[in-house]
Each structure stands twice: as C-alpha cells, then as structure tokens.
C-alpha cells in the first residue's frame, strides 16, 4: 500500500512521526505540507480568495505539489478552507481511498458533504473519523489495513495480582498520534487497586502537555473530542485489564432497570467531567457514550426504542 500524506503544522507532524516510526515508514511515498500561505502567495492579487476556492478548486492546487501515484491519501490537520482541494488532488494522485480525520472542528472541511460527494463521484472512497482514534474497522480494504495498526487503541495488559500493579502493557493498536503508546508505558508498575487514581492517571497522561505525543484533539466543552479520545483510551485499558468498561456499565444499568431513558443513562454514566469519585460514572463525554450505545445496538446487545434503551436478545 502506497500512502501519500497531505498535512499542516505540528498536529500533522505528530501523526506522521508516529505513523512512520511505528508502522508505515516504508509505505509513505510522499509528504506535502499544504499551507494557506502557499495559496495566498500563488494568487497574490486575488481578493476574497477563501470565498472563491470552492468554485474552481483545481485552479488553487499548489504548483509545487508533487504528483506521485499512490493508493491511500491521508489528510492531516489542513485548514478547513482547503478541504475542497482534496478531491481534485486525490484524483491526480490516483488514490483509491482518502482518510480525512477530524480532530478539531476548525480542521474539518467546510463543505464536508460536498467533499465526500465529489470524491465519490470520482470513484474515491472517503472516511472522516472524528476523532482519528475512533477509527476501528472500515468497509474499505486500504483503510482497514491502516486501521490494523492505528486508530482506536487496543492493548494486551498483564497484571501482577499479588502486588496489585500493572505488570506489562503491549500496544496492539496505537492511537494515530501515539498517545496510547506513551500512556501505556507510564502505566507499567502503576497500582490498579484504586479505580479513581488509575482513571485519573490515564486521563492526566492523555492530556499531559509535557509529553510530545499527548492528545491534541479539540477540548472545547461544546465539542469535547479530546475527552472522547480519553474515554476510548481508558476503556481500551480497562478492557485489557478485565475491568468494567463503559459498555459493560451500560449493559449492567439497562439489565438492572429493564428499560432506561437515554438521558437518565447519560446522567448516571457521564455525570460531570472529571468527577471520578462517583463509582457509577464510566466516561467523561456524551459523545463517547453515544458511540458505545450505537455499537451495542449494532451488536444486538441493546435495543433503542425512541429515547429509551432495553436489553437485546444477544
């Protein structure tokens, strides 16, 4: 699989660094930093350039963009106004699939649906995982190959049950920015007996700016992508340790109550960011809760009837 990466800034660099070092170094055939400044310079005299770009995106593809045939195009952290350039670029590169993660609303293509339609019209498959570390499985073979190594974190963890510490952590699938790997390392020898302190350690290390590979997703209270990413990481660690994950907690509550309103479930499971001294709380973001509800519904373990949930037959 030949991968071409179009990126911008340190967000993109962090992903590239991790992806290249820990998985696809030999597959990356080219990197190109797509900056708004490049386009501004090339169209120096044009007014309102950013309002015009979508009308004729081909015209604004930077002249120095190297064209090399490849299979998968990764788009990492480019400006939202530049999303319209991706379909014609992808076509020139001859790609079969585009992976365009959204870890910040300001990096999401302004006209996401148009970009998607345009790519599909050109026969190119596209996915927009939001955030990148929600990438799990794909209908597309190329993206699936990528998702075997990077996406939603997955671990194998050994516990020392005598000392009640985490003995060893093996990362099966790293988060694209490398956070799963960096947090995993810091959990070795950490005591697991106190649920609250283990969770706090995971969440703190996930957003620890002293660590180069810390999560850099958006953390606005209105769009808590970083919090969702931390929830996914915590649950991947809990799953590997055999502890109660958010999904298991959801199933237990539904089983106990027979039927529950989603709003009520949210009050129990999410219950205020950071409030981990409450043992019923299982995740920090409603977005993660909704993802788990969707997955459990697809797995047939729960049934959604309007605003209520009950156990499924599986």
């Amino acid at each position: 699989m030949k991968i071409y990466i179009i990126y911008r800034g340190p967000f993109g660099e962090q992903m590239i660094n991790n992806i290249a070092l820990k998985g696809f170094g030999d597959n990356i055939i080219n990197l190109y930093e797509l900056k708004p400044e490049t386009i501004e310079d090339e169209h120096n005299n044009q007014e309102n350039i950013w309002e015009k770009i979508w009308e004729e995106p081909e015209k604004y593809i930077p002249k120095d963009l190297p064209i090399e045939k490849c299979d998968l195009l990764l788009v990492l952290g480019i400006h939202s106004k530049l999303g319209d350039l991706i379909p014609p670029i992808a076509e020139r590169l001859g790609v079969k699939a585009v992976l365009y993660p959204i870890d910040d609303r300001k990096m999401a293509p302004e006209a996401k649906k148009t970009v998607q339609d345009d790519l599909e019209k050109r026969g190119i498959y596209v996915e927009f995982p939001e955030p990148f570390c929600t990438l799990n499985q794909s209908d597309n073979e190329l993206i699936n190959e990528f998702a075997k190594k990077f996406g939603r974190p997955k671990f194998e963890i050994k516990l020392d049950k005598d000392k009640k510490i985490i003995k060893d952590v093996k990362v099966i699938r790293d988060s694209p920015g490398g956070t799963a790997n960096s947090v995993g390392k810091k959990l070795i020898n950490f005591p697991y007996g106190n649920r609250e302190s283990l969770i706090k350690k995971i969440y703190d290390e996930h957003s620890n700016e002293g660590e180069g590979n810390c999560c850099k997703a958006e953390m606005d209270p209105l769009c808590p992508l970083m919090q969702e990413a931390a929830d996914l990481l915590k649950d991947a660690i809990f799953e590997a340790c055999g502890f109660i994950t958010t999904k298991k907690a959801i199933l237990k509550i539904i089983s106990d109550t027979k039927e529950i309103k989603i709003k009520k479930l949210e009050e129990i499971i999410v219950n205020g960011p950071g409030n981990w001294n409450n043992s019923a709380k299982a995740c920090d973001s409603t977005k993660a809760l909704n993802l788990y509800i969707k997955e459990l519904t697809e797995e047939g373990k729960i049934i959604k009837i309007n605003d209520r949930l009950k156990l499924g037959k599986i």
Partner: peptide, 8 residues
C-alpha cells in the same frame, strides 16, 4: 480566517 489551532 483562523489560521492556527489549539495544537499550534
């Protein structure tokens, strides 16, 4: 035209 983001 927001040019830089949280990660920056």
């Amino acid at each position: 035209f927001q040019r830089y983001f949280t990660s920056d």
